[in-house]
Design a binder for these strands. Structure first.
Length: 755
DNA sequence: TCTAATTGCATTTTT
DNA sequence: TGCAATTAGA
């Protein structure tokens, strides 16, 4: 393997073999290249067996990219046995192996926020605490903070916002998780960390000696528990390599602690420290802009990004009237870049908060520019998907309380509130799982016969599916049975509304994704198991990232980390928006983090950077006058071109007539996922329009057909109808229309065509 | 049990 | 402003 493609410090990081290594990798400094070359070097030149190397990332995307690129260097044979994954997936994999040590069963399930909330609500009920006084979300966030510090309920000390009740709740919550045979995201790491640190234990020894080399990416984002984990896992050889950039630490609010990367040398005084400071991504002007912003930070590791690239075009700072004016200018700038032959997928629009996206989105739609929104609600967060998933998880692990409480009466099967309460209270009292209490309740004389009957039916239902699972039903077969036999499909069909139609569609899509999983696993190695599938979707966000479609990306700055674009349009650069208000800006740590966020935004741009600030903005229903962001004051005059638009550009059309052309779903994940299914689903005529959104058609896009009252439309099921009313809906405009023979119906406009 | 109405709430969200 | 989540009502 030749290292000629690496610069001096990169080579140093690659060649370093034993002992701790700390790499400060500036934005655009070839970090991924360095990491992958380093691993390739260990494999090929140092002959380290692949299974002895562990590389940890924070996102699945980063893990996937890393594995792919290593594979390109050393071939799939060696790469396959590497341990490459996120903190969570690696921990989950280890925890399946050592679950017995912590009282879990092999088929434990992983609880997401809503599961956690459901469980906490149950805990509160059992303690007769009102969730008004103790909001589950707040309590959980406080508990998670402690878990991220590695503290058990016993270790937590009483403090102002962690009183005795909270400590008790933390303990009860953990107990409830255990009896549910479930873990939350924090547990995955915490439990393995504890095992790895455990002296004189078989598991501990095994874990500490399992890996010869440990590598951590985005090290600035680690929390205390994660740090302790990788320290323990590399304890035997001390070959711990951490790579990160404290200037890009933007997840403090999630427990990330910049102090860890900054203090690494204190913990490992013999660490070799390498700084990658040459930027290969951006023009010199952009690098300068980024530097001038970050250098005002109160505290940071000293380093200086530099580049050999030309100055490039100046940073455009455009002053606009308000958010609509801003959107109009954003769109105009995008058009300009497109006309200069810039690929739309090389253009991105950033904002500080999601709430800013709506106006931008409207402008893109009105102008018929192809765009995609990154982030937002996820497919698997939809209620109907979560319901089916809860059934599946219950089949896998009937002890799961959060799942049981979710679907015991969904669809309604006459199991009333009081019955449910009784069962769960009984479980708490007995210290047993809810499933156990449910089973004994079918015999309980304390319940009316009718109730017992219903409960028994429910138990039988679950048991039948469990038998089917044991008999070898695949996840897909099982899910199909559940959708039908639980009565869920019928329940939705009976509702017969626009929403329920959409839900059925989502479920079909969900079933499709299970089939896809089965095909995937078949192609690779293992057989597809329900455990595997559930773990995968617990730890992988479905539309994990940007689709590689020719569309302009709209996203929060947080979502932009790790990406790069030819052209970046940064919107809402005003004080109180960015840096965000409501932060205690006297707290220099918080302001520093906002500053780093701005640094991340700027360093995403390769060639062209436009920054927008409005003098007036309506956000959360409040209109306010705003000053341009203090961060803009840091930009030196020489690299900036200020543009003020005193007469505003005018507004994009906001006609009450909704254009069918733009009536495609607004919601982010729909947008991301429905292309795939559109072709195969004849029941969705509206989706025919999807093709037209392709960038190729931009130049000659056809005039939009409009939807207005009194107009005739066609629906696949109801046939021809007349539009009576149009309202904006969450997904796409909601149309009320009368269909002869079917009466008045509310339909999402994407299910309609002009007729 | 389902719907409508009301209330309260709103950074960022890798898993 | 826009929504989701709870609550009241039929």
């Amino acid at each position: 393997m030749s290292n000629t493609q690496l610069n001096e410090p990169q080579t140093q990081a690659v060649r370093h073999v034993s002992g701790p290594l700390l790499v400060f990798a500036g934005a655009g400094s070839g970090k991924t290249r360095t990491i992958t070359y380093r691993i390739a070097h260990l494999l090929a030149n140092e002959k380290v067996p692949p299974y002895r190397i562990l590389a940890v990332t924070f996102t699945n995307k980063a893990a996937g990219e890393m594995r792919d690129r290593i594979e390109q260097l050393v071939g799939s044979g060696l790469a396959r046995d590497l341990w490459v994954g996120t903190f969570h997936s690696v921990s989950a994999r280890l925890l399946r192996r050592y679950c017995g040590e912590v009282g879990l069963n092999r088929n434990f399930v992983i609880y997401d926020e809503s599961d956690q909330k459901a469980l906490m609500s149950r805990v509160l009920k059992s303690k007769n605490l009102s969730d008004r006084e103790y909001p589950p979300k707040l309590i959980l966030s406080r508990i998670h903070a402690k878990k991220q510090e590695g503290l058990s309920p016993e270790q937590v000390e009483r403090s102002r916002n962690f009183d005795t009740t909270l400590i008790e709740l933390y303990g009860l919550y953990q107990k409830a998780l255990l009896s549910s045979n479930a873990v939350d995201f924090e547990d995955l790491i915490l439990l393995i960390m504890r095992l790895s640190e455990k002296p004189n234990s078989v598991a501990g020894e095994e874990l500490r000696s399992r890996f010869g080399f440990v590598l951590v990416d985005e090290f600035q984002d680690t929390n205390s528990t994660q740090y302790r984990l990788v320290k323990a896992l590399s304890a035997q050889t001390r070959n711990l390599c951490v790579v990160g950039d404290d200037d890009q630490s933007i997840y403090r609010w999630r427990g990330a602690n910049v102090g860890i990367i900054r203090g690494f040398r204190r913990d490992f005084p013999d660490a070799c420290v390498v700084k990658l400071e040459q930027n290969y991504r951006s023009s010199a002007n952009i690098v300068q802009a980024a530097l001038s912003i970050i250098e005002s930070a109160r505290s940071r590791e000293p380093k200086r990004l530099w580049t050999e690239q030309a100055l490039g075009s100046p940073i455009i700072v455009r002053s606009v009237a308000d958010e609509r004016d801003e959107a109009a200018w954003v769109v105009r700038t995008v058009r300009e870049r497109l006309s200069q032959q810039v690929d739309p997928r090389q253009i991105a629009v950033f904002y500080r908060v999601h709430a800013q996206s709506r106006v931008l989105e409207e402008a893109f739609r009105a102008e018929n520019l192809p765009y995609q929104i990154i982030g937002g609600t996820r497919f698997f967060d939809r209620a109907e998907i979560k319901d089916i998933l809860a059934y599946l998880r219950l089949v896998e692990n009937p002890n799961s309380e959060a799942d049981l409480v979710r679907i015991i009466n969904v669809p309604a099967r006459g199991i009333g509130k009081k019955t449910i309460e009784l069962i769960f209270d009984e479980a708490t009292r007995m210290g047993s799982s809810a499933w156990h209490a449910l089973k004994s309740s079918t015999e309980s004389p304390g319940l009316p016969t009718a109730a017992r009957q219903k409960l028994r039916q429910f138990v039988n239902l679950i048991n039948e599916w469990r038998a089917a699972l044991v008999a070898g039903n695949t996840p897909f077969q099982l899910a199909n049975r559940i959708v039908d036999e639980s009565g869920y499909r019928k329940y939705l069909q009976d509702q017969d509304s626009a929403e329920s139609d959409a839900r059925i569609g989502n479920i079909e899509e969900f079933l499709g994704s299970i089939a896809e999983y089965e095909d995937d696993t078949e192609l690779t190695d293992e057989k597809s198991t329900l455990t595997g599938y559930l773990e995968r979707i617990s730890l992988v966000a479905a539309p994990d990232a940007m689709k590689d479609v020719p569309k302009v990306a709209l996203m929060t700055v947080h979502a932009a980390k790790g990406l790069e674009f030819d052209t970046v349009l940064l919107s809402g650069m005003e004080d109180d928006v960015f840096p965000y208000k409501g932060l205690d800006l006297g707290e220099s740590d918080e302001l520093d983090e906002e500053r780093r966020l701005a640094y991340v935004a700027v360093t995403r741009a390769k060639v062209h950077l436009s920054i927008f600030h409005a003098s007036q903005r309506t956000l959360f229903g409040q209109t306010r006058y705003l000053r341009r962001s203090m961060f803009l004051d840091d930009l030196p005059d020489g690299i900036v071109k200020h543009e003020a638009s005193h007469q505003s550009l005018g507004r994009f059309s906001n006609d009450k007539n909704i254009e069918i052309e733009s009536a495609r779903p607004l919601s982010r994940d729909r947008w991301l996922t429905h292309e795939k299914s559109a072709a195969s689903d004849a029941l969705r005529p509206g989706e025919r329009f999807v093709d037209r959104s392709a960038f190729d058609d931009l130049a000659h896009s056809e005039p939009a057909t409009t939807l207005r009252r009194g107009q005739s439309v066609f629906h696949a099921r109801f046939g021809r109808g007349i539009v009576e009313n149009i309202e904006s809906g969450a997904e796409s405009p909601m149309v009320t229309a009368t269909f002869p023979g079917f009466g008045r119906r509310k339909i999402l406009s994407r299910y309609l065509v002009n007729g």
